[in-house]
Write a protein that binds this DNA or RNA. Sequence first.
DNA 1: TGTGAATATGTCAGGACGGACATAGTATTC
DNA 2: GAATACTATGTCCGTCCTGACATATTCACA
Lengths: 110, 110
Amino acid sequence: MDKTKRAKLRAHGWTVGSATDFLGLSEQEAALVELRLALSTSLRRWRTQRGLSQTELARQLKSSQSRVAKMEAGDATVSVDLLMRSLIAMGATPRDLARAISTPPKAVAV
Amino acid sequence: MDKTKRAKLRAHGWTVGSATDFLGLSEQEAALVELRLALSTSLRRWRTQRGLSQTELARQLKSSQSRVAKMEAGDATVSVDLLMRSLIAMGATPRDLARAISTPPKAVAV
DNA sequence: TGTGAATATGTCAGGACGGACATAGTATTC
DNA sequence: GAATACTATGTCCGTCCTGACATATTCACA
């Protein structure tokens, strides 16, 4: 990975040097990962701030606890679609989504 | 549901007036439609600004011309996922997506 | 008008996704 | 340790999405 890429990733809150770097993701793949991560983190925040358990949220979303867990885990079987739909179902507006996307969580665990 | 929203939906092939209307299109469903519209509009802008035809873009995205057309039309068979992936594949950053989402396209012609 | 390029619309087989269930791990409290 | 509540992980079947193809429509220009 070249320096500018490193800088960009770091600038967006990624810990350069861990999995992302090792796997050698392209700019675009990294952007997708960043997106997923931002949304899944955001979802967990929305849920916990309301004092809901995954099971309770699942019922509200007409989904299941396991899927909620996977959403929050950024699991590969979860689409960006589902993440956004869930956030919206929790009352998030497109503007909220935009904010979530453009302000990625800082330093991911190493 | 107000008239402009109706028009927007109808303009993009959504069934307004029957089942959807009867069930009452909620704020959340509207937000999803808004999201889809914002992204599809954005996609077309990115493409045309680069002087690409749908066919050329399709090749770049490893998709097909018909799907690109449907993406830009906000067709119901196109997922938000695909729209975002396509935009990212064209070089859009998460920040660009956020901007696209929070800046809804100006009133669709009736 | 005709001609070709670009775009739109319809359809479908195959693959990806999602809800559901089972189960395993974790934390708290007694 | 047991019991309870919450969360994580694995798997499966039905559904939805997607690329591809065919075809229709629109557009630009001579």
